[in-house]
Amino acid sequence: MPSRSLYFRDLRILAAGAQSVSGILLAALVMAFAPFPEPFVEPTERTIGVMASSFEFSPAEISVNPGDLVTIELTSADVVHGLYIDGYDMQISADPGQTQTLTFTADKSGTFRLRCSVTCGDLHPFMIGKLHVGSNTLLWRGFGLATLSVFTLLVWMPATFRKRNQDTPDVEI
């Protein structure tokens, strides 16, 4: 009865496969959602002056720690400029001579794009900057997931299928 033994052998391979599939899935979930290992820094209040001119922010990159109460003082040096923070969905705009402030708690960690939110001339779309809150978790998580999928595709899947093909003799039906 070759078909019967084949049936049991298939079940065993499937079970072993399922185990390693769930292992890979678990690893992926941990990479995507587990709390990011980061040194804890006591949150403080920070005031950061940002000078906007055509077509740059100065400083263009702002780094804060998670939980900080951040106040951005936006000053414009030529025309009306704005400041929009991706992810936090907040914006202010300032005329020259009229400094505007934006206060928020940096409760989302990661790196977020700053954009000028008021059309300020030809190169307005390129007037951008970055807000770093803690480490760039999104980048590292993405990096981890990418590595895992490359490993799955190039190492785990060929190994598993080769094993299965070797274990399964060709059967003529």
Partner: peptide, 17 residues
């Protein structure tokens, strides 16, 4: 604030933007 501060300065010190 609207019309003067850009040149005369927010604090009136003559050092506006």
């Amino acid at each position: 604030q609207r019309d003067c501060a850009a040149c005369h300065g927010v604090d009136g010190d003559g050092e506006g933007i």
